[in-house]
Computed example of a mutant assay.
Amino acid sequence: MTSHADQPNVARTLTGQSGGEIPRDDWSAGRGRLFLLLVAPSVLLLVLLNAYPVFYAALQSVRNGTLISPGEFVGLSNFAKVLQSPDFWHSVRFTAIFTVSGVAGSWLIGMALALLLRAGVYGGGTVKVLLLLPWVVPIVVSSMAWNWLVATPDSPMPTLARMLGFETPLFLADPLLAAITVCVFKVWCSFPFMMLIMSAALSGIDRSVYEAASIDGATGWQRLRYITLPLTARTTYISWILMTIFCVNDFPTIYLLTAGGPIDATTSLIVLAYRLVFQNFQTGPGVAIALMMTAAMVVVSLILFRQIRKSGGPA
């Protein structure tokens, strides 16, 4: 029979097969070392796969090389050249517009659809599957479909505009219309992603909270403002971080639809970096743009993570 005085010692030990007692602390330490030994090769491989490209890119940004020649060391002149280029600042402007419209538009539509689906619609499962199609369909197919809709004066959308009495709009030839079309295309491709995330966040809110608010006389707008938005704030900020990264780094959406034209109206930073590196063979300036994009994304992510902490989320 074990006395009360012996119980702490028994709780702190494990019995080995030989009958001897192995201290729990030693057993846990051995298990931890074994775990580190097992995961070390995978961690090392991941570090090498990610660290080497970043290190090589940093070297390229301070040289005047090409894709086949490393070139000579030029210091920060590539960064200075980029910052003095009007094309760079034009791309910064369009990237900001493209990102803000993509994040805000996809979130507003995704949130609205998530609320609608939570309220209950006939054939909700089928509707949700259909709403996922813009995100599920490969971007190549989507861009081809949009080109068919708007690319030429005889496409369906310009034809419809003429039937309504408007002049024939050149959606991909007019700089302003091309920029608007690309932004709308991005929202169309991205809102299902936001809808899924916000649907998951809404499913975590107990319906009794809304019932209690209704009993207290809260209107639909008040329930949205004081219940739904605060309780989904963490998920909202996380979705904004992800969508910001997606928009800034989105190359195919722009390139497949307009290739950055007309007259560079839809040239984002990632498209400009691609042109410099793979078309003009100016590796240094192109990589410099990519590194500045990475630094900007880190700053934006830190700001949004601070908002997550303020909303009570883990950080």
Rank of each mutant, 00 (worst) to 15 (best):
R162W: 05
R223K: 15
T159C: 04
T236Q: 09
E167V: 00
S203G: 13
T244Q: 11
P252V: 01
T235G: 15
L242S: 09
L177R: 15
V209Q: 13
E211S: 12
P230H: 09
A218Y: 10
A173H: 08
L224V: 04
Y210K: 05
V248L: 12
L224G: 08
T152M: 02
D250E: 08
Q222P: 01
A179M: 06
S208G: 10
W188H: 10
A218N: 10
A145Y: 11
W240P: 01
Y237E: 02
A233T: 07
V150R: 11
S208K: 13
T253K: 09
Q222C: 02
V150L: 12
L196I: 11
I241N: 08
V182K: 08
G217M: 06
T236L: 08
I180Y: 12
S208Y: 14
V184P: 04
R162G: 07
V248K: 09
A173L: 05
T219V: 08
A200H: 08
A178C: 10
S239D: 06
N147F: 09
F251S: 04
T159W: 05
M194C: 10
A213P: 01
V209H: 11
L172T: 05
F171C: 05
A218Q: 09
D250F: 05
M163R: 15
A161T: 02
A145L: 15
T236S: 15
I245Y: 11
M144E: 06
W148F: 13
F185P: 00
T253M: 11
S214F: 03
M144C: 00
N249A: 14
I227V: 12
V150Q: 10
